[in-house]
Amino acid sequence: MNIFRLSGDLLHLASIFILIARLHQTKSCAGISLKTQYLYLLVFATRYLDLFLGFVSVYNTLMKIFFLASSGYIVYLMYSPLKASYDKSLDSFRVEYIIAFAAVVALAFPHKYSVVEVLWSFSIYLESLAIIPQLFQMTRTGEADNITSHYVFALGGYRALYMLNWFYRYYTEDNYVDYISWIAGIVQTALYGDFFYIYITRVLKGKSFKLP
């Protein structure tokens, strides 16, 4: 564990708390992509199968349980109590493409051909693309409320911090490299490029998230 990874995990945790607070406060899920949330649930469900297979640390186990439970809870909130505020027509990105792409890449380049490893690779590639429906919806409507912007920023920042963590690990752990994490992490962080720019130039200056 190092400071970059810990900060990344905490930012990831914060993003989920921000989203749940947003859903509770406004009692609405307008502006939030249910498809992205479904994808995160799928990401955690396929990656954290290893909860039953091995033990890393109490921290690791508790975080995994939290990510699984919270993503399930968010999907439940959007699917059931807040369903009336969900506008399906705005959340129109075809996620089948994302799932199929992640599946093909995971099958082509896993670390090892075992069910758990292929699912792990699938979850890493899927996570790198899972924000696309959310970004797509924000681009389509051209705006987002501030708390939703904070949510997306925290989510993007988390993977950017993980990249610093991998640099750190490369130098401190005998050239440690996980190329799947690196490739997916670069893709994931790059996807946020435009968003980060608008967030920093507008939202942090007290204006709303609006596309020019």
């Binding site: 990874r5 995990d9 990831h12 890393v56 690791n60 975080m63 670390h111 792990w120």
Partner: peptide, 10 residues
């Protein structure tokens, strides 16, 4: 076995 990949990150 020895070839098992360890994923210690979240």
């Amino acid at each position: 076995d020895e070839d098992d990949v360890v994923h210690d990150e979240l």
